[in-house]
Design a protein around this nucleic acid. Structure first.
Length: 474
RNA sequence: GUCCCCAUCGUCUAGCCUGGUCCAGGACACCGGCCUUUCACGCCGGCGACAGGGGUUCGAAUCCCCUUGGGGACGCCA
């Protein structure tokens, strides 16, 4: 508490007008990581001053996404809609000391001004008609900030260096609507001041808002926080990410079987680097993340790389840690199971061959079936009657095993192969079909071990029976 | 239109600040091959980029300028 001044306080301020999308998620992650890395604090704030567009569903979707990503906050969530008194207070103060003024121009009039300005080759701006009228409040009036007419405002950006704007580029922007509600720039600044935010990391689409906000800080006599503008995330066509780019909501990736750590890893790596390292665990990210290696150019979202990274995260995680992630997908397939040794063993065999949890659940099905469902072609090709003997011998051998382990399993296989004069593949593939119903599965021994002695034996005998019946019908 | 930002393989990027070690490194994807009981994993190799033009310099991916290209912002949205 002695040196609170040095504590980095970042924030993530989504507006609840939709689900949390990739770009927003990355901004959240950057702020969160920076706060964690710096041992600072991270604040969540919901920017719902636009009552028309904000929805409770969106608020819930944002929380859901944050939770899935594993981003926790130290303060909040604050809701701007509950802080109108605070904004009102600041707006009044600005009007009182002459930093802002009432404006009674109608939207139509302002539209015309913008047209005019555009025609004369400039930026569409409000022309300042009411600036010096010293109007009192009246119904329908908005409050405009009295922006400086000369000079320039400089952003000392921690990522991109200094960015200067001529103040003539700015117009007297509205800080309070005619219904008294605060506009974005005002609300953000007041919030960041009152919440002690001292480090703002956001998309570079906010660069042009920054001079306005800096001016507001100055008018309010407050210290300007540090800014760091990160490049945006673009769609495959290099345009701003939007609905037409397909899955944008981060939770859509949860539903497609992605691991949140992979998502975080991917998003961070899109714009930030640590030499050639591609794979990062959450803790590694907290340890290594900093602003020094954030790029300056926009990045294209590349789903294939996300997929590859997801596979890598699945491969590298402990089977046990994967259980809660996989469970919903198992349930969706009607598989009832519970955490434990058996499930861990199943996952262990599936890890290197699953790019998503959906794939993993697909691959896990045979382990849980009462009896495997034979793929017609596979059974016809590999469960030949002449294998009846060897398979039976194998089943008997396994049944007689005191210790059910890979070494003993191998010995039995060798014995069967030798007695039947068959190569390993000639035995293994039929066994695979007998046990899984398919020609593709995890390695034969690891799969047998994971399945468990009882199931292996009964499935083997079932196969023998099947083969004998097939023989009878021929 | 005006202002701002950006510019290395198809994509994500290292290198750029502190020019030479870069005829530019890694990853994804793609193509070969190896391993192998299937499918994967893994391993080896290949393809593939400093946007263009001017400078500065003995020397430029690295510094400067211009052009071009891309993106963003210009709202009683955030």
């Amino acid at each position: 508490m002695i040196s609170m001044d040095n504590t980095i306080i970042t924030r993530f301020p989504p507006s609840p007008t939709g689900s949390l999308h990739l770009g927003g998620a990355r901004t959240a992650i950057f702020n969160w990581l920076y706060a964690r890395h710096m041992n600072g604090r991270f604040v969540l704030r919901i920017e719902d001053t636009d009552l028309q567009r904000s929805t409770q569903e969106s608020v819930d979707a944002i929380f859901e996404a944050m939770e899935w990503l594993g981003i926790d906050w130290d303060e909040g969530p604050y809701f701007q809609s509950k802080r109108f008194d605070i904004y009102k207070e600041h707006i009044d103060r600005l009007v009182a000391d002459g930093s802002a003024y009432y404006c009674t121009c109608t939207p139509e009039q302002v539209d015309r001004m913008r047209e005019e300005a555009k025609k004369s080759g400039g930026k569409p701006k409000y022309d300042g008609s009411c600036r010096e009228k010293n109007l009192q409040w009246e119904a329908g009036a908005v409050v405009r900030f009295k922006a400086p007419l000369t000079g320039s405002t400089v952003i000392e950006d921690k990522i991109r260096g200094n960015i200067a704007f001529a103040n003539t580029e700015l117009d007297d922007f509205i800080i309070a609507r005619s219904d008294g509600s605060p506009m974005y720039n005002l609300a953000v600044v007041v919030d960041d001041i009152t919440m002690n935010i001292n480090f703002i990391i956001r998309g570079d689409d906010h660069i042009s808002n920054t001079p306005k906000q800096i001016l507001l800080y100055q008018a309010l006599g407050e210290k300007i926080p540090d800014f760091g503008h990160v490049p945006m995330v673009l769609g495959h066509d290099k345009s701003r990410l939007s609905k037409r780019h397909g899955a944008m909501a981060v939770t859509a990736y949860r539903d497609m079987g992605y691991h949140p750590d992979a998502m975080v890893n991917f998003l961070v790596r899109l714009g930030w680097s640590h030499g050639d390292q591609e794979f990062f665990t959450r803790n590694e990210l907290i340890e290594k993340f900093n602003l020094d290696h954030i790029g300056r150019s926009a990045g294209v979202f590349n789903p294939e790389k996300l997929l590859a990274l997801n596979a890598e995260h699945i491969r590298n995680a402990s089977s046990e840690s994967l259980v809660p992630h996989l469970m919903p997908f198992l349930e969706a397939k009607g598989i009832k199971t519970e955490p434990g040794e058996f499930l861990n063993g199943v996952i262990e065999t599936l890890k290197p061959r699953s790019k998503t949890f959906i794939e993993m659940a697909d691959g896990a099905v045979f382990y849980f079936q009462e009896k495997p469902v034979y793929d017609e072609k596979a059974a016809a090709k590999f469960l030949k009657p002449d294998l009846t003997g060897p398979i039976k011998q194998l089943a008997d051998g396994i049944a007689g095993l005191a210790v059910f382990d890979e070494k003993n399993l191998e010995d039995i296989f060798k014995q069967v192969m030798a007695d039947a004069g068959l190569g390993f593949g000639k035995v293994a593939q039929p066994v695979r079909v007998a046990l899984t119903g398919k020609t593709v599965s995890p390695g034969i021994f690891e799969m047998i071990l994971a399945l468990g002695k009882e199931k292996v034996i009964s499935r083997l005998y079932d196969a023998v029976q099947w083969m004998e019946k097939a023989l009878g019908t021929e």
